[in-house]
Design a protein around this nucleic acid. Structure first.
Length: 325
DNA sequence: GGGTATGATTTTAT
DNA sequence: ATAAAATCATACCC
């Protein structure tokens, strides 16, 4: 019943040729991942699948043949016996029924094991986790750059995701995955990412500085603390607050090596920023350090307060549908 | 080999 | 639907 359907869907019990590739394509599409770009692994998968299909068909044929043979054999036996004792057609029918049931149960087992094999094959080949590859350095750079320059609201719109995907030569869903992972892991342990954050922020600042030339030193803030230069990446919740406090105070408390290390970097960064006269990164200039952008509870998305803090460049309009899946 | 990093998937909550 | 959180499975490094 269900086994039949599934085997048919997998192309195992379907038409002899071509079914395999169709099934492979369907499976690949169903897995939601890559489409038809990795033909090497696909051919491997297809070969294995066709192997399974072949075994299945030969076995099935064998069983059928055996069933027929056995049936005729029994029929002959019955016929022979009919000379010595009366045999009703009902009995014959019953006999044949028993035989067929027996064989069909065997067939069921065959189908089941075939299904299992296909499932294993699928999970082995199609589960992307099994062949995970790290993104190349450049892609990670691009993603990190975006993330840290939109740290107050690291939720790229659909368009932005597409852009990033194109730049990194990965899929949109991979971009989504990356940001999902990044957000949660960043939030979970900000301290661990502080260095990275500073690095990218500094780089962005430098870029902005070189782009916007110089001379905007007129309005250099006399109170760098209030500007919260480190604030953009210190949206920590209470847990990791010690670090941000250190940085903001700018004092000399050196409770931990990490803190000290970060301290110096933050200082240099602050320096850079104060020279550039702001946090203009061109892409998302504002709300970087707006007190609302970094909402009170430290999260990016506050479920309780419908703060309408959206990205400045991208409106809420994006109505893109994901083609995959 | 063990430990961590990381991309992907699954589950849960809204 | 979307994102967070938890989890998985592998990669990468020592």
């Amino acid at each position: 019943m269900r086994l039949d359907n599934m085997l048919l869907a997998e192309g195992v019990s379907g038409p002899e040729k071509g079914g395999g590739s169709a099934a492979a394509a369907a499976a690949a599409a169903a897995s939601g991942g890559v489409g038809a770009d990795n033909s090497a692994e696909h051919s491997d998968y297809r070969a294995k699948l066709s192997q399974i299909r072949q075994i299945y068909h030969t076995e099935l044929e064998k069983y059928e043949q055996a069933c027929n043979e056995f049936t005729t054999h029994v029929m002959n036996l019955l016929r022979e016996q009919s000379r010595t004792r009366p045999i009703s057609p009902k009995e014959i029918e019953r006999m044949v029924g028993i035989i067929h049931r027996k064989f069909s149960s065997i067939q069921m087992q065959l189908k089941q094991s075939t299904c299992e094999a296909v499932m294993i094959l699928r999970s082995r080949f199609l589960d992307a986790r099994r062949k995970r590859r790290n993104f190349n350095k450049q892609a990670t750079e691009i993603l990190n750059e975006y993330f840290y320059s939109h740290l107050s609201n690291p939720y790229p719109s659909e368009e932005a995701k597409e852009e990033l995907a194109k730049k990194c030569s990965i899929t949109v869903s991979q971009v989504s995955n990356w940001f999902g992972n990044k957000r949660i892991r960043y939030k979970k342990n900000i301290g661990k990412f502080q260095e990275e954050a500073n690095m990218y922020a500094a780089r962005t600042a430098v870029n902005a500085a070189s782009v916007s030339a110089h001379g905007s030193q007129a309005n250099s803030p006399s109170t760098p603390n209030s500007a919260g230069s480190a604030g953009s990446f210190n949206m920590s919740n209470s847990g990791d607050l010690f670090m941000s406090v250190q940085s903001l105070n700018g004092d000399s408390y050196q409770g931990s090596q990490v803190g000290a290390n970060v301290q110096s970097q933050v200082d240099t960064l602050r320096h850079v920023i104060s020279q550039t006269g702001g946090y203009s990164d061109g892409l998302a200039a504002n709300q970087m350090y707006s007190p609302q952008g970094i909402n009170a509870n430290g999260g990016w998305q506050d479920p309780t307060t419908p703060s309408s803090v959206t990205s400045p460049t991208e409106g809420p309009g994006s109505v893109h549908s994901d083609t995959s899946n």
